[in-house]
Amino acid sequence: MTDWLAFSRACVADITAELARLPTRTERERVVRLGEGGDETTVIDEAAEQVVVARLEALGVDATLVSEELGVRMLGAGGPLHVVVDPIDGSVNAKRGIPFFSLSLAIADGATMDDVVFGFVHDFGSGEEWVGRRGGGAWLDGRPLVAPDPGETIEILDFEGTTTAAIAARAPAMEGIARRLRVMGSLALSLCHLAAGRVDAVCCLKPARSIDIAAAQLLVRERGYAIELFEADGPFGAAPLDLGQRSRLAAAATPDACARLVEALQA
């Protein structure tokens, strides 16, 4: 059986070496092509993905790879095992040297969010390692997350997937719902911070894809918190692990708090 935690840590080491090889904004942000996820693929995106894919291929596993840049690709004979990876979540931060971006990697025994059995998010700024295991809880740097739950009253709301226009359009609706806003630049890490109780809720104003959330959502759900893809068909757990479905997202400590956010975002 594959030790996915050891595998993830090896990927972190490889990506860290690529970051050192490409230390400046000039080197990192040159666009090389359009990724299968629809966003521009930069040098740093491509370099990070290549080292992860190389490690996967070396394992010799039969799996379905779902990746930011390559899209959906069969490894070996393919099959129900899914590896969902965003090698650089928060790539704008990474390109500019802002230390808040991550490797997001999820392992699933099927094709939906409910099938995710292992989630791994590594923060390249702080060095923190976030791990979720289906039925086994959520962990930060090897310790179980047992922090106080985020409050029913939302003091800090994290906006992600943002542009100036999106913030200007939606921030007024949050008055009376959230006291403070934060915009940090990595959806995977923001969901991890929710799992740790550091923020009270997260909204993604841009339609999110499975690669953005597959790993971190496991930590959120293992903590018993609410998360919704409110523009998707069907329940959250049935969301496919692919690049086709896109939906805005809300997550909070309770279903009621999450519902208030969804209502405000849809107004």
Rank of each mutant, 00 (worst) to 15 (best):
G132A: 05
W139M: 06
G119I: 03
G119Q: 02
D114M: 05
D123Y: 01
D123A: 03
D123F: 02
E129I: 14
M113K: 07
S126L: 07
V131D: 09
E128Q: 14
E129V: 12
H122E: 05
V131C: 07
E128I: 09
F120E: 10
V117Y: 08
G127A: 03
F120S: 11
G127P: 02
G127L: 01
D114V: 02
G132Y: 02
V121Y: 09
D123N: 12
G125I: 00
D141M: 05
V117A: 13
G137F: 03
E128K: 15
A138Q: 04
G135N: 05
E129G: 07
E128D: 15
G135Q: 00
R143E: 15
V131E: 11
G137I: 07
E129M: 11
F120K: 01
R133T: 15
H122G: 01
L140T: 08
D114S: 14
V131I: 13
F120Y: 15
V121C: 11
W139A: 06
F118S: 03
D114T: 10
G135Y: 05
D141T: 08
E129L: 12
F124P: 14
V131F: 08
V116Y: 05
R143Q: 15
H122C: 04
R133I: 12
D141F: 06
W130F: 15
E128A: 15
L140Q: 13
W130N: 13
G137W: 04
L140P: 12
G127M: 03
G132C: 09
F118D: 10
D114G: 13
G119A: 01
D114R: 14
G135I: 02
S126A: 15
A138K: 04
G136C: 04
R143F: 12
G142K: 01
E129A: 11
